[in-house]
Amino acid sequence: MTSASMAGSGRIRLRWATRRRPGTFLVLLIATVLVMMPFLWMLSIAFKPEAEVFTDVPQILPADPTFENFATAWTSGNVGRAMINSTIVAGVAVLVNCTFAVLAGYAFAKLPFRGGTLVFLLMISTAMVPVAVTLIPLFLMTKGFPLVGGNDLLGQGGTGLLDSLGAVVLPHLIAPLNIFLARQYFLGLDDDLGEAARIDGANELTTFWRIYVPLARPLVAVVAIFSFTAVWDDFLWPLVVTSSLEAETVQLALSKFLTGGNVMYGPAMAGAVLVVLPVVAVFIFNQRSFIAGLSEGGVKG
């Protein structure tokens, strides 16, 4: 069973994918509710006054719902400013990852070159070294970044990118594991498609852009989501390279309510809910337009 022969023989469109399935619906419903359980409790605590967080019998519905936690998170947590910052940083990371990581992954999968495997292994192996080791050299590089923050061309004289959003995004611009993901994804796509295009005289870039990118929309969606959440979730790095409230990111803002000796359940959960909402929006938008959208694009053999 080679994919080529299979692709050639099946032309009849079976409507199996759109048939109503009560079983699937039920199982999905149960699984989703189970998975959502901790989040539902989170939502519940976000609306509870402090005294209601711990009760003898846990109650999912707040007896005396309040918006105060959200107000606290928003005002004393600096969540608003932090969300703008994180959005900017995440946006840049998404853009660069979706372009260069996908491009590199494609090249590793479809345009093998001498030493490619070695370069590939070297690149993804950098993801396997714990952050504790790379934190200080990366910090020094951020401080020594040339021509910004009062630095000269050699990175001397000022504080470089420190305490700026540029510093926050620096390690997230291209994630090695995204390149790996892209490579694996393109490995799963048929070589014949590209060959056909090349025979027609398309250059490599046109082949990539016209043939493979349209097929890679689920990949781009996943890379986008993962790049976004990598920045959104990062705590240690922004903590180390920023110091002012102007450059604060969402995780730093949230941590105010989570710190040891001073845990504030209500505001922490309210802040988390606020911080999660835009990501959920990004996801729903993405999965509609990319993952689901692919079936409309179809695979033309």
């Binding site: 299979m6 692709a7 099946g10 032309r11 199996w16 990949l219 695979v299």
Partner: peptide, 14 residues
């Protein structure tokens, strides 16, 4: 999910 979407539907039909 992304992987499943990349499997050509023609294969299943065949």
């Amino acid at each position: 999910l992304a992987g499943l979407q990349a499997i050509p539907r023609a294969l299943y039909e065949a």
